[in-house]
């Protein structure tokens, strides 16, 4: 098969509110090949999570996908009936959320929850389900899974809960896994454990993954490609090393410059002036223009996407490409 695993074109997810339409996702396009890891980066309100939720049809009311297509293995998922989406969710596309308590049911044991997840997509006996669950828990690094499978979520630590959530997501060996800030709520040492395990699992199973995060450092260590979102649009995308080494969009550059690791201690950090715009009242043209030092009259028109080799960006005044780091 030559078609990409996932092809998103012109995706728009809007939320009607009492004060206007919030354009959370406003024309997002990207493709994802089998086995590829895409890092979707942005600040709060950039639309990165809503993009993730849109892909598996889990946009909260009153939000809805108003335009665009989501082709998964060639088939458009937009407008599919819930029944059809439920067959795909969990089996072909799985999701891992930021807060594992959101995924796990507090009143059911882990064994029961995993059994239910297995039953949702295949006929399976109790004993076999238990065996498969224990194997899945062992794979994500839960020590002595035979003894812990009958525990309840509150008996696990935060890192272990996230491991259980990942084990459930992997039960059906999905082709695509969407991970929405899966390590943000965890401590650094636990984050490193989860990152290491996710990276190994993706490789082992040949899964594709969309890793949604606000943290450039974690994305740079796990993703093959990166897409930077701002106010509902992808402003820049490309191979993760190239984009971070020589960003073309001023917003990407601004994000990198505001990281304390890139400035010597004690010196003033470069800061992006102003705040992210309201999604209800976006500036016409480039949404970043009011905060951008390179902006001029041209920026009142939404910039077309510029393609250069494996990279693309939306900017009238892109930064020059740096040849060496």
């Amino acid at each position: 098969m030559t078609a990409a695993l996932l092809e998103v074109r012109g995706l728009k997810t809007h939320f009607p509110t009492s004060s206007g339409i919030a354009r959370a996702v406003d024309g997002v396009s990207f493709t994802l090949e089998r086995g590829e890891v895409l890092g979707l980066v942005g600040e709060s309100g950039s639309g990165k999570s809503v993009t993730g939720f849109s892909l598996i049809g889990l946009v909260d009311e009153p939000g809805r996908i108003v335009d665009g297509e989501i082709r998964f293995e060639g088939r458009d998922l937009v407008g599919q009936p819930t029944k059809e989406l439920r067959r795909i969710r969990g089996r072909d596309i799985a999701m891992v959320f930021q807060d594992p308590m959101m995924t796990l049911n507090p009143v059911l044991s882990i064994a029961t929850q995993m059994h239910l997840a297995l039953e949702a997509h295949e006929k399976i006996g109790k004993e076999e389900a238990r065996q498969r669950s224990i194997e899945a828990l062992a794979r994500v690094g839960i020590p002595s899974p035979e003894g812990r499978i009958d525990s309840f979520p509150h008996q696990f630590s935060g890192g272990m809960r996230q491991r259980v959530a990942i084990a459930i997501a992997l039960l059906h060996r999905p082709k695509l896994i969407i991970a929405d800030e899966p390590t943000t709520a965890l401590d650094v040492s636990i984050q490193a454990q989860i990152l290491a395990e996710m990276k190994a699992l993706v490789k082992e199973f040949g899964m594709a993954m969309i890793w949604i995060s606000h943290d450039l450092a974690t994305v740079s260590s796990i993703a093959d490609r990166i897409a930077v979102m701002y106010a509902g649009r992808i402003v820049e995308a490309g191979p993760v090393g190239q984009v971070l080494r020589s960003p073309r969009h001023p917003y990407t550059q601004g994000l990198l410059d505001s990281l304390p690791t890139r400035t010597s201690p004690g010196e003033e950090l470069a800061q992006i002036p102003g705040t992210t715009p309201s999604l209800i009242n976006l500036p016409s043209g480039c949404a970043f223009a009011p905060r951008c030092a390179r902006a001029n009259a041209e920026c009142a028109v939404i910039p077309e996407e510029v393609y250069e080799d494996a990279r693309r960006f939306r900017c009238h005044h892109p930064l020059p490409e740096r040849s060496t780091p």
Binding site: A192, Q193, K199, A217, S220, S221, I222, P239, V240, T261
Partner: peptide
Amino acid sequence: VPRLEIDDDVDVVFRP
């Protein structure tokens, strides 16, 4: 702590 890795050839190894 994950570092910002800008080299495509480096396969980041975690030491949790």
